[in-house]
């Protein structure tokens, strides 16, 4: 009797399932019911494993340096936010947040505009030689830019020095100049370009033909027809660019240096060479650095997960 109820319950739950291999009718077999339960337990375990480190770091942020170094308890002895506030103020995180925000906004615009325009040309206009360009872009996916970070940095530094001379500034790091290459670098991303290109290729071609007959220029077609139709992909790329820009630290650390535009992650990377740093400061700084992306994720999780899944299939 009990067995029967169990199998009915599982069968009901499985009745809407269209993908994967288990189906509602499988729930008649005891062995398959066992599978269903094991699978459920494994799912719970995955959630626990994924969430634990994040929960731990937030809890650890409540501890003072002595408790953190010596206590073997996961739960802190007090939940007062005073330690968090102290670290926030001492490390001046307000400014780093602002700087990261500036970086992110520029990165999002640059990622959407430049990759979007290039994808539009490669997917729709297809001028002579577009295949060569596409092949060159694809090649960059195989030889990732991290390996040429040294040359990349040398180039950026040269251009910035030249710009500093032009604007008669002494040290480009005291100005907002070094933010510009950090924004622009997000305009050259092969992965996002391909996501755009695939999306644009799926747009109905009749629209463009019609617009062209109406006398729209190529650029106008992009701004008036392609962009409004592409909101889903624009959101996805903008979010990808935002998280990437928030997370980056190698190049920002080199280019922004100790200037006033240092970002949150560049500050975290500083802990590598800072001498008077306490482990609790590191822990709290880590919390400060993961909260904004988590909020962004909470808001846009649907678009993000869809974007990832969609991009992967064809890419």
């Amino acid at each position: 009797m009990k067995n029967r109820r169990r199998s009915q319950f599982l069968a009901r739950r499985y009745s809407n399932k269209q993908d994967g291999v288990l189906r509602a009718y499988d729930m008649r077999s005891r062995g398959n019911r066992a599978w269903a339960i094991v699978i459920f337990v494994v799912c719970l375990a995955m959630i626990a494993i994924v969430l634990f480190p994040v929960i731990w770091v937030m809890l650890a942020g409540f501890k003072d340096v002595k408790e953190f170094t010596r206590s073997t308890a996961i739960i802190p002895s007090s939940f007062s936010f005073s330690e968090y506030i102290k670290t926030w103020n001492q490390l001046k995180f307000s400014r780093y947040y602002f700087n990261s925000l500036v970086l992110i906004i520029g990165a999002m615009i640059s990622a959407v505009v430049f990759n979007g325009l290039l994808a539009y040309v490669l997917a729709i206009l297809k001028p002579k030689g577009h295949k060569v360009v596409f092949a060159l872009v694809m090649a960059t996916m195989l030889i990732p830019p991290t390996t040429s970070i040294v040359a990349q940095y040398v180039n950026i530094n040269n251009v910035l020095n030249w710009a500093a001379k032009l604007f008669q500034v002494d040290n480009y790091q005291t100005t907002i100049l070094p933010m510009i290459p950090l924004w622009l670098i997000y305009g050259a991303n092969a992965f996002w370009l391909i996501l755009f290109k695939q999306f644009f290729e799926g747009l109905p071609r009749e629209y463009f033909e019609a617009a062209r007959i109406d006398g729209c220029s190529d650029l106008a077609i992009f701004t008036r027809i392609v962009l409004p139709l592409s909101k889903p992909i624009l959101v996805v790329i903008a979010i990808f660019a935002a998280t990437a820009a928030w997370s980056d630290f190698l190049l920002p650390n080199l280019v922004l240096g100790n200037g006033p535009w240092k970002t949150v992650m560049a500050r975290l990377f500083d802990f590598k060479s800072t001498i008077n740093v306490r482990p609790t400061d590191i822990v709290r700084a880590v919390v400060f650095s993961i909260v904004p992306p988590m909020i962004l994720f909470a808001i846009f999780q649907k678009q993000i997960t869809k974007g990832v899944a969609g991009g992967g299939i064809k890419g």
Binding site: C43, W56, M265, I282, M294, F297
Partner: peptide
């Protein structure tokens, strides 16, 4: 895919670490 329970939550949770900054993950 095989679990009809908590599917949405599991999907979203397992993806979550991916948006965390890599450096923060290492420090944790």
């Amino acid at each position: 895919t095989e679990s009809p329970f908590l599917r949405g939550i599991t999907r979203v949770s397992v993806y979550m670490p991916n948006i965390l900054p890599g450096l923060a993950v290492v420090l944790i």
